[in-house]
Design a protein around this nucleic acid. Structure first.
Lengths: 162, 162
DNA sequence: TGGATATATCTTGATGTCAAGATAATGATG
DNA sequence: CATCATTATCTTGACATCAAGATATATCCA
């Protein structure tokens, strides 16, 4: 009997005509997701980053050729162009990335890690991976497989706009 | 091979020294959670609400005695006092809730649904439950059980600050 | 060549949230 | 009864985000 179960029990009393079973998994999913995000933010904070900044640096680091346009970052991070601009501005001000204009196409500007940004993400990703591993440490192999299988199926169903 | 698998494959090339397996379930969890939230927002929008407003109305509706203080709403919704104030202001302006001062304790103000707010949440909750049910319709009983079991365990481990 | 269209990025204004502190009423203590 | 601490709510300032539109450059084709 957790918080979500209590909410379901309240609905059972308040609106017995409704079958609110789906609220259980979905409520837990949302709560777990926020709690996990908050935990990961703490790791980023130890490196002077927030999740947004980490996301940019990690995307640049893992994606060949380690230099992406704002549009590519936008697609990779699934955010709007305005948010990309803002994130890059912040990181550029901190000296972690730099904008580099393309000589043959004046519209094109590639974003690349500075040496400092590269050094930071190399350290931060190690810490982040350790945090993530620990966050899932409480689940055994079977539970993990069950979780991932369901999430894969949900993700597949959602991204097609179904 | 979904988007998250591709990210893992990129890390495998970029940093073969790291074991990033945990990024799979956690990445999918975050993406699924945002996608589901966006889908539910659409339901709320059909009733002129956003998730924040729905949350307040639904909390008031399901919780006896259907009138809570700002502090109680704050605890139930796990948000800060400033956010509670803002949400109530919005809903009060829309005529869906009202503040009612306590006569014996000047600090205490209870928030209650207006008739209009009550009527709205009765309709919206039906629609919301239908949306939630549909969002999970792609999972069979076994998948659902596996998902919920893992989420319960994660939630239990997280809320104790572990 | 010139003008319409497409592409890429940035700007603006609004929103929802939080952290920290301000305000106000009550209760406890000497 | 005066003061201090407690409780409850609201205010302020900052931030990340988005949607919509502005700006700038490039490409197509008549």
């Amino acid at each position: 009997m957790d918080d979500v179960d209590r909410i379901l029990a309240q609905w059972q009393v308040a609106r017995p005509d409704l079958d609110v079973w789906a609220m259980g998994p979905l409520g837990r999913l949302g709560r777990v997701s926020s709690a996990l995000a908050r935990r990961m933010e703490q790791t980023f904070a130890r490196h002077g980053l927030n999740a947004a900044g980490f996301d940019v640096l990690a995307t640049l680091r893992r994606t060949p050729p380690h230099a992406l346009t704002a549009g590519e970052l936008m697609a990779a991070m699934m955010i709007t162009s305005g948010t990309v601009t803002n994130r890059i501005d912040q990181l550029a001000k901190a000296g972690l990335v730099e904008r580099q204009g393309d000589e043959t196409d004046g519209r094109r500007v590639v974003i690349r890690l500075t040496d400092e940004g590269q050094a930071l993400i190399e350290r931060a990703i190690v810490d982040h991976v350790a945090t993530q591993t620990e966050l899932l440490a409480g689940l055994d192999a079977e539970e993990l497989a069950g979780l991932d299988a369901a999430l894969r199926k949900l993700m597949a169903g959602l991204e097609t706009g179904a």
